[in-house]
Amino acid sequence: MTELVATTTGLFPLPDWAKSDLSDLKGHQKDDLISGDESEEIVAQYDRARSEGIDRQRSAGLDRIVEGQYRWDDMLAHPLCVHDNVETRGIVRYYDNNNFYREPVITGDLGFDGDMAADLETAAETVETDALQAVVPGPYSLADLATDEHYGDDLLDGVTDFLVDEVGAFPDHATLFVLEPSLVEEAPGDGEDERASEAIDRLAGATDADVVVHTFYGALTEKVHAHLLDADVDAIGYDFVTDHEQNLYNINEYGTKDSISLGLVDGQNTKVESPDTVRERVEWVSENAPGASFDTAYVTFNTESFYLPTSKFEEKLDALAAAAKTEVEA
């Protein structure tokens, strides 16, 4: 039997109260925010959002709980945008959608920062280790989102070193979700695909947790998928909302890991999937990948979820948790 684990990809939408309160506070403290500093009032608002988000995940019945990444205004680029050796400049479109982030320009070595670890430490105060899930941008995606004025050909290595150090400072956690949309959106070419896999392998070695590399916004090319399988991770994630046929083809043609992450709930559409619909999608993957046998299937969003209204997001949390209460044949 395959164990179903209900979880999320992190990057939650801010609750409605936080959007207005934080907008007012940030408007008064614009200069501090540009330099990466946050006032006690802003920190308190994010702490409240994180606490409420953890409580909501717990009440929904999720198996893994994240801290929510409420501070990540720049989405996956956040760890760079708050770094001392990164300048934020103009506004850049975030992949192919209507969200934008500040352009992070790397101007010096990406030394240890500890920003992500600090947020996870706060979450770990109330979340048990066997339920705590960390979320990080993948090294290839983070390098892709950056503008480099320092590393040159060593950019991917520099970003990987940075992430390895950051993850190494995390409190004990059960699962690490590594989000790698750029492997789909800006697929690496010959040679670079192998380097991307090696970077992910290095990052996975920084934690004792189960490591899930979650890809989305479509399907990996066959060659990128084949190289990704070489990384020593526990599961690869597939966006079955955007392109279920090609993702299924990759699994059947090249195999996958012993566990899998199933992106079955739409993180960009307000239509709420029922638990029955989610279960049917789990069963569809199982029935149509007859050669695959999974120890664990992480049932989750296909993308980040910050695009959603809070009410719809919470309904989707409930659907994920309810859908994972049954086991499926391996």
Rank of each mutant, 00 (worst) to 15 (best):
Thr7Gln: 09
Thr9Glu: 01
Thr9Pro: 00
Pro13Trp: 02
Pro13Arg: 03
Pro15Leu: 00
Trp17Gly: 08
Trp17Gln: 11
Lys19Trp: 09
Ser23Ala: 15
Gly27Leu: 12
Gln29Arg: 13
Gln29Glu: 15
Lys30Cys: 09
Ser35His: 10
Asp37Glu: 14
Glu38His: 13
Glu38Arg: 15
Glu38Gln: 13
Ser39Glu: 09
Ser39Pro: 08
Glu41Gly: 08
Val43Gly: 01
Arg48Pro: 02
Ala49Tyr: 05
Arg56Thr: 13
Leu62His: 05
Arg64Gln: 13
Asp73Leu: 07
Asp73Ile: 07
Asp74Trp: 00
Leu80Gln: 03
Asp84Gln: 10
Glu87Cys: 05
Thr88Val: 15
Thr88Tyr: 05
Thr88Cys: 14
Arg89Gly: 08
Tyr94Ser: 00
Asn99Phe: 14
Thr107Gln: 12
Phe112Leu: 07
Asp113Phe: 06
Asp115Val: 09
Ala117Leu: 11
Ala118Glu: 13
Asp119Ala: 12
Thr122Gly: 08
Ala124Glu: 02
Glu128His: 06
Ala131Met: 08
Val135His: 01
Val135Thr: 04
Val135Pro: 00
Tyr140Gly: 11
Ser141Ala: 14
Asp144Glu: 13
Leu145Cys: 11
His150Asn: 12
Leu155Met: 10
Asp157Arg: 10
Thr160Ala: 07
Leu163Pro: 03
Leu163His: 04
Val164Thr: 05
Val164Phe: 00
Asp165Leu: 02
Asp165Met: 03
Gly168Met: 01
Ala169Asn: 14
Phe170Asp: 01
His173Val: 06
Thr175Trp: 02
Leu176Met: 07
Leu179Asp: 02
Glu180Ile: 09
Ser182Asn: 06
Ala187Met: 10
Pro188Asn: 13
Gly189Met: 11
Asp190Pro: 10
Arg195Tyr: 08
Ala196Arg: 10
Arg202His: 05
Asp210Trp: 03
Asp210Cys: 03
Val211Gln: 03
Val213Phe: 00
His214Ala: 01
His214Trp: 01
Thr215Tyr: 03
Phe216Ser: 04
Ala219Gln: 01
Thr221Phe: 04
Val224Ala: 14
Asp232Phe: 04
Val233Trp: 05
Gly237Phe: 03
Tyr238Trp: 04
Glu245Gly: 07
Gln246Ile: 08
Asn247Gly: 07
Tyr249Gly: 02
Asn252Ala: 05
Ser259Arg: 01
Ser259Val: 09
Ser261Asn: 03
Asp266Val: 00
Gln268Ser: 12
Lys271Val: 14
Val272Glu: 06
Ser274Ile: 10
Pro275His: 05
Asp276Lys: 14
Arg279Thr: 06
Val285Gly: 06
Glu287Phe: 06
Ala289Trp: 02
Ala289Leu: 08
Ser293Arg: 15
Ser293Gly: 14
Phe294Glu: 02
Thr303Glu: 14
Phe306Glu: 09
Phe306Pro: 01
Tyr307Trp: 09
Glu315Cys: 04
Leu317Ala: 09
Asp318Cys: 07
Ala319Trp: 03
Leu320Gly: 01
Ala322Cys: 09
Ala323Ser: 15
Ala324Trp: 00
Thr326Arg: 15
Glu327Ser: 15
Val328Tyr: 07
